[in-house]
């Protein structure tokens, strides 16, 4: 997998929300076509900031980001979407007042082609959404809302999907379901960068993982190797193995 060119290559990126206060302090990150890569780390390590920076919601002060062979530094989110990247934020990720079907339709806003086949694909992938197609998104459960957010991002068939803490605030049962959906999406060839607080679950599922600390990539390796790395375990996964 790593013999091919990276789909996304982030090098030495510095970024933050306030001038002269960088949350990301020289972070590096790569993901190859079709990979599932977890980004874990303690609170405040810069995981979500990394996702926002990659997706153009924050402009890096320094560093390079190349996606599908083109620099995306300085591009805004709408341009990055057109390059083939999708992003599902942790919160405010659906239009609450719109139905499930309408939310999916909004996901295809830039397309100048019939969108019914795309919606049908999403409904096949997420049967629960098909059942709820006429229900307002604001009335969905947390897990269903997360599925809808992912479904909407998939309407444009992205090469890479960035997921920012998709399991946040979900019950364990729903976490299982959401993670299974993520795995399924990845199996169809979509690369996934999974920013997760639930480090163990994320690494169990990931091809590779990055451990961020204080805005830098402190460890990088295969998911299984990071899970078994005592240093990573002590610091971020808790002392007791499941």
């Amino acid at each position: 997998m790593t013999d091919s060119a990276p789909l996304l290559k982030v090098e030495n990126v510095y970024a933050g929300y306030v001038k002269d206060l960088d949350i990301l302090q020289g972070v590096n990150f790569r993901i190859y076509p079709g990979e599932l890569v977890a980004v874990i780390g303690p609170n405040g390590a810069g995981k979500s900031t990394l996702a926002k920076t990659i997706f153009g919601l924050l402009t890096p002060r320094m560093g390079s980001m190349v996606f599908a062979g083109k620099s995306i530094v300085g591009l805004k989110a709408d341009e990055i979407v057109q390059q083939g990247m999708g992003y599902v934020p942790q919160i405010s990720n659906v239009f609450r007042s719109l139905t499930v079907e309408e939310n999916l339709e909004m996901g295809a806003f830039v397309l100048n082609q019939p969108i019914q086949p795309l919606k049908d694909e999403i409904f096949t992938r997420f049967p629960k959404l098909a059942e709820r197609r006429n229900q307002r998104a604001g009335t969905l459960s947390g897990g269903e809302r997360q599925m809808l957010a992912m479904g909407r991002a998939l309407m444009l068939k992205p090469k890479l999907l960035l997921l920012d803490e998709p399991s946040a605030a979900l019950s364990p049962l729903l976490v299982d379901s959401v993670f299974e959906q993520i795995r399924e999406i990845n199996r169809t060839g979509t690369a996934i960068a999974l920013v997760e607080q639930n480090a163990r679950r994320a690494l169990e599922m990931a091809d590779r993982g990055y451990v961020l600390e204080a805005g830098r990539d402190r460890f990088e390796g295969r998911g299984i190797d990071l899970l078994n790395d005592p240093k990573v375990g002590e610091l971020y996964l808790g002392a007791t193995k499941r």
């Binding site: 239009f95 007042s97 309408e102 339709e105 806003f109 100048n112």
Partner: peptide, 20 residues
Amino acid sequence: IAPEAMLKAMRDARSRNLAI
């Protein structure tokens, strides 16, 4: 612009082969 309004405009535009 409310999402409902945006959606309505998108549908209208698509049906007439226009774009926003």
